[in-house]
Design a protein around this nucleic acid. Sequence first.
DNA 1: GGCATTTCTTGACTCGTTCCAGAATGACCG
DNA 2: CGGTCATTCTGGAACGAGTCAAGAAATGCC
Lengths: 143, 143
Amino acid sequence: MSTEARYDRMLRDAALRVTRPRRAVLAAVHAHPHADAETVMTAVRRDVGAVSHQAVYDVLRALTDAGLVRRIQPPGSPARYESRVGDNHHHLVCRSCGAIADVDCAVGEAPCLTAAEHHGFEIDEAEVVYRGLCPRCAAAPVS
Amino acid sequence: MSTEARYDRMLRDAALRVTRPRRAVLAAVHAHPHADAETVMTAVRRDVGAVSHQAVYDVLRALTDAGLVRRIQPPGSPARYESRVGDNHHHLVCRSCGAIADVDCAVGEAPCLTAAEHHGFEIDEAEVVYRGLCPRCAAAPVS
DNA sequence: GGCATTTCTTGACTCGTTCCAGAATGACCG
DNA sequence: CGGTCATTCTGGAACGAGTCAAGAAATGCC
């Protein structure tokens, strides 16, 4: 099955209509892990030509709602999208360049940590963001 | 020592000039844990009258840089500020109303968790955000 | 092929935050 | 205490990221 057919299948299985922008956004998110909306937009336009920014936002939301895409919001960054869903993995974020890497969740499902004090909250997720310097920024002298 | 004198001391100890806006912002952040910039602005203006929004942003940044205030950026929320600094505590965030509560860090200093795979990153902090429903939203029927 | 619903287009708008030139002020020094 | 200098504040503009909304275009079903 071609990747295009695969994305079409994913869309249909999620009860979503199959449209060119949707195919293109799904492909872009798969091709560019942790891309922001602007990056997705650029990739989509390179792939299928003119697509409105509104359509890209709409499609990203529809795919996120359908569980085909995960939306993360690392501090200091615009929202980012990734195709790796359902395993509650965490992220490493570089303080300097913003690079993001995945970190497997030791538990594999949310919530994976227990708050010392839950203040009466019904906790259903624990998201961990590890911050530091990526190999490249750690090797470069601070300037 | 009055609270005002206490804030003046904190500012001087951090090598920051003592100005009315600065005193007021520091007081506002102490009085309103996890307040966003807008809330801080409102409190400051109620306290000392007209203060430009630029000044509030500038002061919040100066206080954060000086370590007197901590800036957090919970997903789906504007930046928030708190006076509780230095203990690497985490947060509980309500999915529904956005309420935030502190959670002590079991380790007390960063990084408090070890990533299963660090991808060559030099990790210096692990931030945990627990998400769920606060007692109030958990008790109210979804509508 | 027609129809109904959904999706996309186009442009405007909002929110939260930053930029910038110039005025005002705090702190230091004599 | 007054002068000076560097810093901070003011007022308005601007930006980035995302949302809103009316109408045109497209998908999928029958």
